[in-house]
């Protein structure tokens, strides 16, 4: 089984990797690029823990073949903070106690970021439906939704 060479841009950095056809983008991120912030919790696109932004689109990286990443721009949780400065969503999640075990947190932050980039003033309902593909078993979502709404308000002010 021959490996395929793929070039892509991950969090602004050019990367190259060799992958087998079966490998998903999530496999490559976690196992080859050491970006373990994206989590594998279902491998079927039902939980959102592996969410990344692929050429501007929010996707489950477990449902993307690694070979499809050729020439693409990929944003993962590891690229969300800019240097020492957390993304406002990351800061608000901490302030709001919007995480418990934290395993869903990277996926939810990435999904929320994708939402706020499209819709700076989402309603509670919009936030809830946008994040419906991101399961969280700990929080009951309340503090997550509040943190997203508060971040949106903060980002609109600044």
């Amino acid at each position: 089984m021959s490996k395929r060479h793929v070039s892509a841009v991950v969090n602004g950095d050019p990367v190259e990797f060799l992958c087998t056809p079966e490998q998903t983008l999530l496999d490559v991120l976690r196992d080859d690029l050491d970006l373990t912030g994206s989590k594998e919790c279902c491998s079927s696109g039902d939980c959102g823990a592996c969410s990344v932004i692929l050429d501007g689109r929010l996707v489950c990286s477990c449902l993307v073949l690694s070979a499809e990443a050729e020439g693409k721009r990929i944003e993962t949780i590891e690229g969300m903070a800019k240097g020492e400065e957390l993304h406002p969503l990351q800061r608000r999640f901490l302030e709001h106690a919007a995480l418990q075990c934290g395993i869903c947190t990277p996926g939810i932050l990435i999904a929320a970021k994708a939402l706020l980039e499209r819709e700076p003033d989402p309603s509670e309902t919009e936030v809830r439906f946008w994040l419906a593909g991101n399961l969280c078993r700990c929080t009951g979502y309340d503090k997550i939704v509040r943190a997203v709404l508060d971040t949106a308000a903060e980002m609109r002010r600044s």
């Binding site: 689109r57 994708a114 439906f129 946008w130 994040l131 419906a132 593909g133």
Partner: peptide
């Protein structure tokens, strides 16, 4: 069909 993530694909 599916979540926001699924909609992207």
């Amino acid at each position: 069909i599916g979540s926001t993530q699924i909609q992207g694909r």
